[in-house]
Nucleic acid binder design. Structure first.
Lengths: 132, 132
DNA sequence: CGGGATCCATTCTGATACTG
DNA sequence: CAGTATCAGAATGGATCCCG
């Protein structure tokens, strides 16, 4: 379907490659919290606010399959499982730090921008609901 | 719809804020290419391989609305338009650099990971096609 | 050249309910 | 506690055609 099969081996640049690995709404956040050390499932869920079980599990599985994190099942009752960064994942996560800094420094702007997006989307939704 | 309205003003951390701005498959790539200076629409399209007109325009508009880039229409015939980073956008884009470095350093791993994903998805698609 | 508009398929996301 | 299963709706992506 793609006329340029070079997509597989040839990325536009390193950023392209990285993005394909951490694409997904929650992955960067998950990785970032894991920076604090091995974390249990429940903790992670509370830390990454707004994520559902389904998404969290799905993303964790992908991150594990991609070799960025490791899952440890202690086989206890009640169940205890935790997740930790691999060295590959740790390197990647550290590369996330500048983004965190930018967000912190520009949180006011970001907040305003997001608020304006809401204003744009709200009328759209109203129009859709109206046509029904 | 969301029981915790704190999502608007309260981010988990700076990273959370940043991600809400650059979420989207193409935005980081667009920003990154703009690091080379003001870029025309056509150039951008060739640079960000695989993007369609629709998506490129859409993402550019959002980036502009968010104050990360500026659009300049020279009002010539044939049309000439270019996009450039604002200072806010420039700061953000520079924060993307470490991710690029990671991707470059680990491109071999990334390639392998992506190939394995394909192997996982291929059987799924076959099964779906089979049921039809 | 640099878009805009529409249609359609695929993918992603989230809420809910259930399990060991 | 740590998931799994299912379903509906939203977002994403591409193809095609149109315009100044």
């Amino acid at each position: 379907m793609n006329s340029t099969p070079s997509c597989l081996a040839g990325f536009s640049c390193g950023l392209d490659a990285t993005l394909r690995v951490i694409a997904g709404k929650w992955k960067p956040l998950i990785l970032y919290f894991l920076l604090q050390g091995p974390t249990r499932y429940g903790e992670l869920k509370r830390a990454v606010r707004g994520v559902s079980d389904k998404m969290l599990i799905q993303q964790l599985k992908e991150l594990e399959a991609d070799g960025l994190i490791v899952r440890t099942d202690y086989k206890e009752v009640p169940p205890r499982v935790d997740y930790a960064l691999t060295s590959l994942g740790l390197d990647l996560t550290k590369a996330l730090e500048p983004l965190c800094v930018w967000g912190t420094n520009n949180m006011a702007e970001v907040t305003r921008v997001l608020a304006r997006r809401e204003e744009w989307h709200a009328p759209k939704r109203a129009a859709v609901a109206d046509s029904a």
